[in-house]
Design a protein around this nucleic acid. Structure first.
Lengths: 140, 140
DNA sequence: CTAGGTGCAAATGGTTTGCTCGAGG
DNA sequence: CCTCGAGCAAACCATTTGCACCTAG
């Protein structure tokens, strides 16, 4: 039921992008590949750091930026002000954030995607991107 | 055609909230009332500063936060990382951002609002808030 | 070998805060 | 008056950068 890995993993795409694959970059790519939640950069750093205590947070920031610019991962910024990244090759989705516990639920809704394009068109615009986050609390 | 000011202005609501109305707060409220665009805090500061060169940016930050916590204005954070505020009493709307020139267009769409509630409900959530921004470029 | 990456610490930029003085009610 | 706000500068926090050293190819 989980189709997350029918696509090439991040590590592989990094290699194909022709990056010099240092130990640090390999490690960061591997950790990102294992990620199923939405850690912010500090949290990603601490996961990576637990496997390589020498790695610096500057390297993590530099590396995610590099991967992002290559279109391998995608930047997310929710209201907590912390940056998160997720695999860019995954099916497009938006996020529903649980305001009680911070949990992030991904969802896909074709109707809402279409509606957004229609709204942009209504104002004479071509939609290049969007950001949709729902903030809610569990019923009951 | 412009119904922006059929509601009480920000200054009035500040007074009714029982704030101690200092010169600085009055000035900030007044400038906010005159605002028709979406200046970020630094820009708001420079507008305010041009009327009172003594005012400090710390006061602007403290004041907008105060007004926000009282529900008088609403915080916006777009992808440029800068905070903007707008009158909270205005009709709810979302934003379409012109990626070529940074211009911000406001729009209202009932369908998209309803759809968002439906999506939240689908996951067992009550929608408390949302953030929807469309980024686009002008056609032709 | 050597271009380019890393670690470290210092710089940055937006925002917040501690402190002391000043002004609103 | 006396409490609360303002101005100032220093602190903060996430992120970026300069530099000397190191490593992948």
């Amino acid at each position: 039921m989980n189709e997350k890995h029918t696509i090439k993993n991040i590590l592989k795409r990094c290699i194909e992008s022709g990056f010099r694959m240092t130990e640090q970059r390999k490690l960061i790519a591997t950790v990102l590949d294992k990620t199923i939640d939405h850690p912010h950069v500090e949290e990603l750093f601490s996961r990576v750091n637990s496997e390589d205590p020498k790695i610096s947070i500057a390297t993590v920031y530099r590396t995610v930026k590099l991967f992002e610019e290559a279109g391998i991962i995608e930047k997310l910024e929710f209201i907590d002000g912390k940056t998160r990244y997720e695999d860019a090759e995954r099916e497009h989705h938006d996020h529903l954030i649980d305001m009680q516990n911070g949990k992030i639920i991904e969802f896909v809704d074709k109707d809402i995607e279409l509606l957004q394009e229609k709204i942009a068109a209504r104002y004479g615009y071509k939609l290049l991107g969007h950001r949709l986050e729902l903030y809610g609390k569990k019923i009951k």
